[in-house]
């Protein structure tokens, strides 16, 4: 930038003002949620509002963490999200390998269908799913959630995995093939180990999608022992007495897994976010 020191200083101040205003827009609502979860239920809407008041305590967290019903939501969410992640990662590695390394007759159209699945509204699938899942005898079970979640995790995962394999030179696998290894050996021994960053990106993103799912969990489970965290929050909201601080504590605890994954694997997360849009 061309300009005197004074101009640069003014620019810098303006940029900082904008930066802080933006941070307030993004961060203050979250801060308020966290601070409210430490208040007593009576003080949540106290006038005038305070970020931290005399009622500060961990009581809401204790209530959530000592309730076996609510702990069960977490267990279910973790179990389903981990199962979905494992199944999605394995399936997408196989599919990505096929798309990246082979030419075959229906490749283009199959690729198109997989990209197109992203645009199928979950609400459209929900009506037949209900009947289908009951017919399969897996209504109100983990299997119902894992199978249906994979429909929308798989297309991102395959797009990301194919993209990652495409960045690896083909000479690598051809060298192993010539040494007598089959295509499966090549995939497992050579491509998978060096694709670990891509696989982590797929895994982290899949876990997040599965952890956050709401509609299928709402319609395909019936009893409270099968509910996941988002549905647990929904159930708490439906109760007669509105336990705001408990609901917020459950929300904060429910956000922690994704938040921690996000902070640890920021780079991979961002790769996942832009994979579906920037390059298909």
């Amino acid at each position: 930038m061309i300009g005197t020191r004074r101009q640069i200083l003014i620019r810098k101040i303006l940029v900082w003002i904008a930066l802080i205003l933006g941070a307030c827009f993004a961060g203050l609502p979250v801060l308020w949620m966290v601070s409210s979860s430490f208040k007593s239920n009576l003080e949540i809407f106290a006038y005038p509002p305070a970020l931290i008041d005399y009622s500060f305590s961990f009581q809401a967290y204790q209530a959530v963490l000592s309730d076996p019903g609510q702990l069960r939501f977490f267990f279910n969410s973790y179990l389903v999200a981990i199962l979905v992640t494992i199944c999605t990662v394995i399936t997408s590695i196989l599919a990505g390998y096929s798309f990246s390394r082979y030419d075959f007759r229906f490749k283009k159209i199959l690729n198109l269908i997989i990209i197109g699945v992203q645009s199928v509204p979950p609400i459209t699938l929900m009506i037949p799913y209900f009947g289908l899942i009951v017919w399969l005898g897996i209504y109100n079970s983990y299997a119902a959630l894992v199978l249906t979640y994979m429909v929308f995790t798989l297309s991102y995962a395959i797009i990301m995995m194919t993209g990652y394999f495409n960045t690896l030179p083909r000479d690598l696998d051809e060298a192993v093939m010539i040494d007598g290894g089959g295509s499966f050996v090549t995939l497992w021994r050579i491509l998978v180990p060096i694709s670990l960053p891509g696989i982590v990106a797929v895994g982290v993103y899949t876990f997040m999608l599965a952890w956050n799912e709401f509609l299928f969990a709402l319609t395909l489970t019936r009893t409270n022992d099968m509910r996941t965290v988002p549905i647990g929050i929904h159930l708490l909201m439906g109760q007669h007495s509105f336990e705001w601080n408990q609901m917020l504590a459950l929300s904060v605890l429910g956000s922690l897994p994704v938040l921690i994954l996000f902070l640890l694997f920021q780079r991979y997360f961002i790769a996942g976010m832009s994979a579906g849009s920037v390059k298909g």
Binding site: L94, A95, S98, I114, L125, L154
Partner: peptide
């Protein structure tokens, strides 16, 4: 071979996308 690698994906998508859409 490429279809074999794709078979889990195709099976899942056929059962949980194509058939349901036709049902709706």
């Amino acid at each position: 071979l490429p279809y074999a690698y794709l078979s889990p994906t195709l099976l899942l998508l056929a059962a949980l996308t194509v058939v349901p859409i036709m049902t709706v």
